[in-house]
Structure formats: C-alpha cells, structure tokens
C-alpha cells in the first residue's frame, strides 16, 4: 500500500466512522439520559433515508427534502415518546427491548406498504456533485467530504449544547440523578420528550445524508443497528465523547481490516470490542 492509497483509506475510514457516530450519538444519548434501550433506533435511520427519497421525488430540492425529513422525524420521536416510551420508565430493560423490537416490525411493515420493497436511490445534489482527484485513478466525491464535515459539525454542536447550555446541564443532571432533578422542580417528562425526539432526529439525519451514498432498501436499519451498538458499547453506554472516539476507531479499523486482513474482516470490530471490554469492562468513557 503506497502512501497515497494509505491516505485515501484513512479518509474512507474517517468518513465511515463519522457517519457511524452520527447514528450512534442518538442511541447513546437516549440511553445515557433516559436509560431506555431503543432497539428501533436503526429503524429511525431507515425512515430518514426513505423520507429523504420521498421528499426529493416530491420537491426536487435536496435541502428542502432534508429539512422536511428532519422535522417529521423529530415529530415522530415526540409522538413515540409520548404514546409508547413514557410507559416504560419504571419498567426493566427487558420490557423496553420487547417494545422496541415490536416497533422494528411495525416500521418495517409500514415501509413495505408505503414505499415498496425495491431498492431506491437518491441522486447527489448538483451543487455537491463534483469530485477531487487524489491519485491517478482515485477521486474523492465532494459529497462524501461534505457529509464528513457535517458530521463533525454536528458532533461539535452536540458537545457545545451538552456542556455549555442550560438544556445540556439538565441532560447531564438527568444522567447522574433523575430523582434529584425532579425534586428541584424540573419537568423531567418534558426533558425526556426533547431528548428522545433529538435522538430520533439524529438517527434520521444520518439516514438523510446517507441516502445519496447508500442503497435505500428494506432492512437497512437492522444492519446499521449492530455496528451502532458496537460503537456505543466500546465508547461506554451513554457517553457522547465515547461514542465519537469509538465510532472513529471502528470506522478506521474496519476499513483497514477489509483490505489488510480480509479473512478476519467480518469479526475484527467484535474482536476490538472484546479486547476493550476486557481492559475496560464499562467501555472507554463510561461515567
């Protein structure tokens, strides 16, 4: 592997990792603050991608479609929290798993009824469609660099909101002691609704920006959910910082293993996870 190719692979790994972070951040946020294990998180990613496809057909505008999809996802998150999830706060994880697995089936069936089972695709918008030559053969599409930067921006935004705002303070307080937050006169239910809605929107946003790069197919959510859980477990359940570091690790390790250790490539991220859990059983940045 010469140096130029090495750099391209590094870029591939970073880009994949950043996208993984975007999906995993919502999962870890919801778990960290609310203690809810949302297995239907992958479905939100799928819904984001399908909504994006639908609205691009309808409006013919990438930005408008992305905004519409994000808003609908946020509302969907709020409705799900208000009607279903809020029944589970006092129950154990097994009940949460049962409900959210059920939601996976419901969303998959809805996807099949609303949009059919054929693979769909969204074109890269014109203003992002160029590419940059990296080596004699390899080009890097501007859109994928855009997505990577957008993920970085969102990561920075999340960091600022959680560490520098009143809402973030409540989120952190809710993470460490929810009863105390309630005693201080904070409406914890409203906080939970906001956090869950934001979590759903982050996953859907990942689906939205993936739509032009991925294939929009039934089952795309479940596939991504597994990688997502690996990231959350490595990073430490509930830690946004952990999810960021872990997502980049998984992205880079997976990318290089695919080429350098093809026989191991299907299990390498799980090996990585096992090794990290042996050293740090709670994950890298668990609180």
């Amino acid at each position: 592997m010469d140096f130029a190719i090495f750099l391209v692979q590094l870029l591939n790994g970073l880009q994949y990792g950043l996208l993984l972070f975007l999906i995993a951040s919502g999962l870890t946020l919801v778990f960290g603050v609310m203690g809810i294990l949302n297995l239907a998180h992958g479905s939100m990613y799928m819904i984001g991608a399908y909504l994006m496809w639908y609205f691009v057909q309808l409006t013919d505008s990438f930005v408008l479609a992305a905004l519409l999809s994000a808003v609908i996802a946020l509302l969907l998150g709020v409705v799900i929290e208000k009607t279903l999830i809020n029944r589970l706060y006092r129950r154990n994880h097994l009940d949460q798993v049962l409900l959210t697995i059920g939601m996976i089936f419901v969303f998959n069936a809805m996807q099949s009824l609303l949009w059919g089972d054929d693979p769909l695709g969204v074109a890269v918008p014109g203003w992002l469609s160029g590419s940059i030559s990296l080596t004699e053969l390899v080009e890097y599409p501007v859109y994928r660099i855009f997505v990577a930067l957008l993920c970085l921006l969102l990561a920075a935004g999340l960091y600022l909101v959680i560490n520098r705002t009143r809402l973030g303070m409540l989120v952190r307080a809710g993470e460490s002691n929810r009863e105390m937050v309630e005693c201080l006169g904070i409406d914890i239910n409203r906080l939970y609704t906001i956090v869950f809605g934001a979590g759903v929107m982050l996953a859907a946003l990942a689906g939205v920006v993936s739509a032009p790069m991925a294939s929009i197919v039934p089952g795309m959510g479940e596939h991504v959910l597994i990688s997502c859980f690996v990231v959350v477990v490595i990073g430490g359940m509930g830690s946004i910082k952990g999810a960021f570091v872990a997502a980049l690790m998984v992205g880079i390790v997976d990318t290089f293993a695919a080429v350098l250790l093809p026989q191991l490539s299907s299990m390498i991220v799980y090996i990585l996870m096992a090794v990290i859990l042996i050293i740090k059983p709670q994950g890298l940045f668990s609180s």
Partner: peptide, 27 residues
Amino acid sequence: EFQSYITDIASMKPDAVFVFFAGGGAV
C-alpha cells in the same frame, strides 16, 4: 461498506473488474 475494497482495486490497476452483487448491495 465497499469504499475500502474499491480503493484497493484502484491501487492494483486491473484491466477490468467482474462482480456479483444483487439488490441493495448492487446499488
């Protein structure tokens, strides 16, 4: 996640590539 494999192919500069993929993977 095919990007790393395709980058690898580019580094080998073959005359052509033959693949089997179907459905979502093909897209």
